[in-house]
Design a protein around this nucleic acid. Structure first.
Lengths: 240, 240
DNA sequence: AAGTGGTCTAGACCACGGC
DNA sequence: CCGTGGTCTAGACCACTTC
């Protein structure tokens, strides 16, 4: 007997899922003890190394803390540092209602610099989507994102007003987003941006230019955003 | 026979060290194949699981890439994203000469908000060090950092003009810096800051407020910095 | 002393990659 | 096809924490 039985997941992942589900459902709270390796091995009918593998994976992801001699415990609620999240998700964390107004959605062939950042030849046809982001009824940010039209042909006619772009990419195109590299600086609002964001001209803005990569390492989306610095705060964690 | 022989390191760490040493010495370059699990097991006289454990650890740290069916390879040189670096170190990466002008170095008891961020009681005596950072002869940033005077009594009389604060803390006080949490937004330069940074009043600045933690998890340094956005670009990597 | 995680063994079969 | 990493077994001893 070996490997999976009921479905095609490896045993260690099944164990992880059981634990994760118990945490989501509230059965396990921060600080609570998780079943020990030996208990898990017995309950799930696997060897000790497999139970260990499951817990080690959860520890690497930060959802669990292991203390020798003591046990394995649910990690304290993690603040989402350096997490790539859609605007919708960011607002959800803050418990704010999110809305997006689509200002334009066109195809351009003349943004060669953006094309280069997406590793596409100059002159490539790019979907250019400009959106005004609102949280709690207040304008929050002005975001322009670019994607290859060849790669996402139907996207222009998708219900972009409703769901987030991230979720459409993930569900409709099976795209798995993995990471983003971002370039951050400060600028002053020009007249149009100021008007859209309902602030005075010359007010300071955070400018974030990000290249979002898929799990396969492909540069997939380019986003340039201007964020009201009185409404938005970037939180970053760095390591030595 | 089991566990270590020649020294008190676990076998999997000894294997890792052998590989790391071979990479440092140039014997292994980016893209080169590492010995397979089975080879390592045979060479180091350990079981397959132990050799696997060694490679899995190296992969987690990003020094190695594993491809099923193909092998394990030295990872491409990693660009240092989200790395906590001193100003001096940042300049060194860019090959720019770094200089700092100390504007003031005093003790304050009235910065209760900063004290709170360092987990000190309000009214604590704090060293307050204000420095103008210059790179390539141009003013770059205005940084004010705070430390507990009780914890670093001699620091005020250290040669701060010369070495970086980081290196003094690490060498003189044996302090091991581990991470920093940073809050980033944009502001406009006020009159004094503008003059010091040699820019026009109202020009956009990146404001970074960071709490630097020691390896023991203790909040040790608080830094508030204003960075010329025309000279400085923040690079960040986020993960999904 | 009892229980925990950390390390380790000596094998096994599977899925995948490159030739 | 053969070699690779991925998963897994059924145990073992050690170091540590908690009681």
């Amino acid at each position: 007997m070996q490997q999976d039985h009921e479905n095609d997941l490896p045993a260690y992942k099944r164990i992880q899922n059981v634990i994760l589900k118990r945490m989501e459902s509230g059965g396990l709270r921060a600080g609570d003890a998780i079943d020990s390796e030996r208990q898990l091995a017995k309950v799930h009918q696997v060897s000790l190394m497999t139970a260990r593998h499951a817990l080690a994976g959860l520890e690497r992801e930060g959802v669990v803390v292991r203390r020798r001699g003591a046990g394995t415990f649910v990690a304290p609620p993690k603040i989402h540092f350096n997490k790539l999240m859609s605007f919708t998700e960011q607002m959800a964390v803050r418990n704010l209602p999110a809305r997006s107004k689509i200002l334009s959605c066109t195809v351009t062939e003349e943004e060669s610099e953006v094309a280069a950042r997406l590793a596409l030849p100059p002159g490539s046809r790019l979907i250019r989507l400009e959106r005004l982001r609102e949280g709690a009824g207040e304008p929050f940010a002005l975001e322009t994102c670019y994607l290859s039209e060849a790669e996402f042909p139907r996207l222009r006619h998708a219900p972009l007003e409703r769901g987030s772009l991230f979720s459409i990419l993930e569900s409709e195109y099976g795209l798995e987003l993995a990471q983003s590299d971002e370039e951050i600086d400060a600028t002053n609002a020009d007249a149009r941006t100021a008007q859209l964001l309902a602030i005075g001209k010359g007010q300071p803005l955070l400018r974030i230019r990000q290249v979002i990569y898929s799990a396969k390492g492909r540069a997939t989306v380019y986003v340039r955003g201007f964020y009201r610095s009185d409404r938005h705060n970037l939180l970053i964690r760095r390591f030595r």
